[in-house]
Write a protein that binds this DNA or RNA. Structure first.
Lengths: 263, 263
DNA sequence: AAAAACCGTGTACGACGTACACTCGGTGTA
DNA sequence: TACACCGAGTGTACGTCGTACACGGTTTTT
């Protein structure tokens, strides 16, 4: 079952890291550092200068400590990055959010999208699995709680959640890439439609991409919209899908849907 | 307009790299290498040992050349990685594909999903913008051509395409992360549902995640499915959304939809 | 024949992640 | 109270990475 070859990081230990549930040491001096302080320092650097500026030396320097001392609190840089993700993704308060599932989910999507863009280095951290940290799960809770208001069954909820999450992340990733490329290209993300259409036009003159050529020749790329509007369009598509599912299942208004019974 | 501070890589030059449209040199010895050979060697390494095994030295060694000679053909490692992406993403032949848009799009999604998983290092390459290489555009052409069969307008087509692409990539990314973690955790991607549910149960005993706790307690995570089936579920959600859009617009069967006219 | 353009080489630098052996201060037990 | 020990933080070192730079050698144009 459990492979014995793992050199470091038992998945149970890494869970402790995320939740701070490591039992305190019983002897020796109390350390001046904590996992939280290390992670916070790393996040600060990433927010200011991007993920590539985060190195173990740099984080240690910011804390006034030697590089190697960080390894007392974090198994390695990969784990540090995962912890950074959870640390930066503080879930939003939902007190003033709409109550109905659709505007509420819309709000959720924009909020998460905005969080990604506010800490866009998050999009550079390779995903290492489903969320397990308290903050990430906090986001998940909000999404699930909202989707639960549709009355859909758990399976449907998760399908929608996956699609939605994927879209949010993907779109934010594109925006981030374009934003990062701006100093090199001199093209703002909003202008990318134009430029992209022109690039395509210059390059696909042979007959290999007929549909693409036709569409690139149309004005789809030309109509400049804000990043947020572009995002909202795809989002509406997904929300429509959820609504359709709700209508089909006849779900909203029913009690807790008990999956498995009834067609 | 154009920022003068770019140390290297004019976006026009990088386009030439992708399309091999650099005019041949007019003097000097003909080089034994080509961009294509360099990229191919890098892809071969990545396919065999993952993206982290791809270093300039390693690629050069595989080609029997010095490290620095690669820089005659490629501006740097980042650009090499982008080129690798396009090189590896060979678009599929569609001769034996279904004709109707829905099964055809389904086929497309599974094919792309499979390509990502077959060269899973592709998911480790940070996205640098919309597709511009010939192969990437080949995929895009297939998707657009298929979506065009719905009769939807260009804007709707692109909304659907973005959501679909995001989902495919996101799901593949998760599977890849779990697969890569398997040697460490001893948990196969298919078993992750179980384990994840248990992890959540262990960690969220307080009242902060009521919905999550309830759903984690249900059997959603428990019902083991293959990776491909899991993917298909979310995919159906998206295809349903497209179908709903088609029904609403009354699009299929009409001539080329002319956007802007008619409600 | 001379000059220009270009390919590939060799060396070198700074930065990275982290393994390892160590010192020293604080704490629980004898 | 004495002491043994555990653990926090240090210092050094190794191997690897991307790539800047100056240089010979080869091919083509003038």
């Amino acid at each position: 079952m459990a492979s014995a070859e793992s050199p470091r990081r038992d998945p149970a230990l890494i869970l402790d890291l995320f939740w701070g549930t490591t039992p305190p040491p019983r002897r020796g001096p109390r350390g001046g550092l904590t996992v939280a302080r290390v992670v916070a320092a790393a996040v600060e650097i990433a927010d200011a200068e991007g993920l590539e500026a985060v190195s173990m030396r740099r984080v240690a320097e910011a804390l006034g400590v030697t590089t190697m001392s960080l390894y007392r609190y974090v198994p390695g840089k990969d784990e540090l990055c995962e912890l950074m993700l959870d640390h930066a993704a503080v879930p939003p308060g939902t007190d003033d959010w709409p109550v109905a599932w659709r505007p509420r989910l819309e709000r959720y999507a924009h909020e998460l999208h905005g969080t990604y863009l506010a800490h866009s280095w998050m999009l550079d951290v390779p995903v290492s699995g489903p969320p397990i940290g308290p903050n990430s799960l906090g986001w998940m809770e909000v999404a699930l709680e909202t989707l639960d208001r549709t009355g859909l069954g758990e399976a449907d909820i998760f399908r929608a959640l996956t699609v939605l999450t994927g879209y949010i992340r993907y779109d934010a990733g594109i925006v981030h890439a374009l934003t990062r490329a701006e100093p090199r290209t001199g093209v703002a993300p909003e202008e990318w439609g134009h430029v992209y259409g022109q690039m395509l036009g210059r390059v696909i003159d042979d007959g290999r991409f007929p549909t693409l050529a036709r569409i690139a020749g149309s004005d789809v790329f030309a109509q400049q919209a804000s990043v947020e509007e572009d995002f909202a369009w795809g989002l509406e598509f997904i929300l429509d899908g959820v609504a359709a599912m709700v209508a089909e299942r006849g779900a909203v208004g029913r009690d807790r849907a008990t999956p498995g019974e009834e067609a």
